[in-house]
Nucleic acid binder design. Structure first.
Length: 605
DNA sequence: CGCATTTGACCGGCGC
DNA sequence: GCGCCGGTCAAATGCG
């Protein structure tokens, strides 16, 4: 704009007018009108030329020339003033942004401090506020060897943590007990979890140690479950469901999973597979994989819990996403239940997720205005046994998804709709042109009292954030190829997540990294969920965008650049972030028992 | 032989 | 109290 002004000034015969103050000047052959809207810090230049009134240079009207020169000088002077004003406005804006960010950080810090205080009161031994509710459930677990073996070998006193997951490992309870103030000194061998730094129990969940025979462990644990059921109910509830188009049996989220069960759930002919994370023996994270009953091409993966161990980047991405999403639920539930105020973040997953969880700053409004979330109910009711947040990464937005997907009567559902506008074709998505604007929307669940609806315009009017994400997005520019750029992307996204307290944005960033690739992942071929193929596949696609359309099966996902809005959202067009729905390049899992892709041969057991 | 998967049984929560 | 359902366990089975 300034450049335009300067250029215009050099042309001469130009009169600059501030529309507000000086509109209506006349008598000039050639004019440029500058409309300045200081409030918006935006200006538009209109140029008008009236050739019929152009003075002839040959005319001997010298005074006219002098006047014009004078006018030019005047115009230049005004232009300078405008520039100065523009600079002032910029400075002011930047200052405001800085202040805002500073306040935001302070607020987050205060929140974290408060959380820390609560945790300290409840359980002095635990310092991390970021412990997720689900992780709390995993208390008492150790990195010990196979649960069965330990269970058999343990004759010593055991500390039950009240978690079913821990039943097999009597030692686990002991381990937890050590960290727990209630842990008896005489407790037997305690195995330090390799990832113990991340395994922390919440005060509420910690329980006095109990001595029991190995054979009785299970019952003891369950009894304690009953005793603490009320406390743990919520903690167990938070879930994050990811909907993605995937022809492969399972999504490769970078983690290693072991299947421990399969059931045919009511209302869905496809079996639901149950997996637990095997990256660490004590990891409490579990996931359910099921095909969408109405669209078999959609794979629904529901995560519960947070990893208590280091994860590869690819796994971190998903974990961060799920943690961040879960934090939404947590934040809401926390408001309704002070006792559950501890954070939801995954300790081991990354500092980013942890930081984000407490940083949930949502500007709620009564209107679905851009940049604001509308929560008809400010919190998810704790009565809901399974509050679930859904990340919908499937094809074109169809809000019927939400209603049918949230069909669990007692569950409140939160949906992050990553679906694109109907016009955007997943397969036709061109990554090269897809990276500027994103739009994160929240689907409404009219049928659920605890649902919330809203939309977030992430970039819109927040230049710093925009820069942040642009930096991330630029790294993913297909022109920059391969693993390095992907790695950078992941790193940038991680930074973005870390630095930005906004939960949704963090989730978004994490989601981005999830789909960008699994750099750094160390897949284990022996585990069903250990593939790194999809990340690799995506890298290839990124390097060769043209090939994307030709991909069969799980297509790559990209965040698209789109100047238009999601039709379902009546939001401003500018600067909105739009996440295109995508099929995910999840590799095929070794597990033959996983719900088979709709198009593929299905063998359901 | 070790490990992962399969699959029937079991348990607990919830609704009627 | 009973039955349904989701979730988990653990023995059986399969595979490398």
């Amino acid at each position: 704009m300034e450049t335009d002004l300067e250029n215009s000034a050099t042309l001469g015969n130009i009169v600059f007018e501030e529309k507000i103050n000086k509109s209506g000047s006349s008598g000039e052959e050639s004019r440029a009108f500058i409309q300045i809207n200081k409030g918006e810090n935006q200006s538009h230049i209109k140029q008008e030329e009236d050739s019929s009134k152009l003075p002839s240079p040959n005319k001997k009207d010298v005074p006219t020339i002098l006047i014009k020169e004078h006018q030019i000088e005047s115009a230049k002077a005004k232009m300078g003033e405008v520039k100065e004003e523009n600079e002032r406005l910029k400075l002011l804006l930047s200052q405001i942004v800085k202040d805002y960010q500073s306040l935001q950080m302070r607020f987050l810090y205060i929140l974290q401090q408060e959380e820390a205080k609560k945790s300290t009161k409840a359980a002095p031994s635990h310092q991390e506020n970021e412990e997720s509710d689900i992780i709390s459930l995993s208390l008492g677990r150790n990195s010990g060897s196979e649960p069965k073996k330990e269970k058999k070998n343990i004759s010593s006193n055991l500390v039950s943590n009240g978690k079913e997951d821990e039943k097999p490992n009597g030692n686990e309870g002991l381990t937890l007990g050590l960290e727990c103030k209630f842990d008896p000194p005489g407790s037997t061998e305690v195995e330090k979890n390799p990832s113990s730094e991340t395994s922390l129990g919440k005060p509420e969940e910690e329980e006095p140690t109990e001595v029991c025979q190995p054979s009785k462990i299970l019952k003891t644990v369950r009894n304690r479950d009953e005793e603490d059921a009320s406390e743990q109910m919520q903690l167990k509830k938070a879930r994050v469901s990811v909907r993605a188009r995937c022809d492969t049996p399972t999504m490769n989220d970078g983690c290693q999973w072991r299947k421990y069960g399969q059931k045919i759930a009511k209302g869905n002919p496809r079996p639901r597979a149950y997996y637990r994370c095997t990256v660490a023996p004590t990891c409490p994270v579990r996931k359910q994989v099921q095909r969408c009953a109405e669209d078999m091409s959609i794979l629904i993966t529901t995560y519960e819990g947070n990893h208590n161990h280091p994860l590869p980047l690819s796994a971190k991405a998903m974990a961060s996403t799920t943690s961040a999403a879960a934090s939404v639920l947590q934040s809401q539930s926390s408001s309704s239940q002070p006792g559950l105020g501890t954070s939801v973040s995954a300790p081991s997953t990354s500092t980013s997720s942890a930081a984000n969880l407490h940083g949930l700053n949502f500007n709620f409004a009564q209107n679905s205005r851009p940049y604001q979330f509308y929560f008809p109910n400010s919190s998810i009711s704790t009565c809901n046994s399974h509050p679930t947040i859904t990340l919908d990464l499937t094809a074109p937005a169809n809000y019927s998804y939400f209603s049918r997907f949230s069909n669990v009567p007692r569950c409140s559902s939160t949906c992050l709709n990553f679906s694109s506008s109907p016009s955007s074709s997943l397969e036709g998505f061109n990554p090269q042109t897809s990276w500027n604007t994103s739009h994160l929307t929240f689907g409404a669940f009219p049928n659920h009292k605890n649902s919330f609806i809203g939309s977030l315009n992430i970039l819109g009017r927040q230049p710093p954030q925009q820069h942040l994400y642009q930096s991330c997005m630029q790294m993913t520019n297909p022109t920059r190829t391969h693993q390095q750029s992907l790695s950078e992307t992941i790193t940038a996204a991680t930074k973005a997540i870390t630095s930005n307290p906004n939960l949704i944005r963090s989730a978004l960033a994490a989601a981005l990294t999830s789909f960008v690739g699994n750099g750094g992942g160390v897949p284990r071929g022996n585990h069903s969920g250990s593939e790194g193929k999809w990340g690799e596949s995506l890298r290839q696609k990124t390097a060769h965008p043209a090939a994307v359309e030709n991909e069969v099966g799980c297509a790559s996902s990209y965040i698209g650049k789109c100047s238009c809005m999601n039709p379902h959202q009546q939001q401003p067009k500018q600067g909105s972030l739009l996440l295109f729905p995508t099929s995910l390049p999840f590799p095929t899992s070794k597990s033959a028992s996983d719900p088979p892709p709709p198009n593929n041969s299905n063998h359901i057991k």
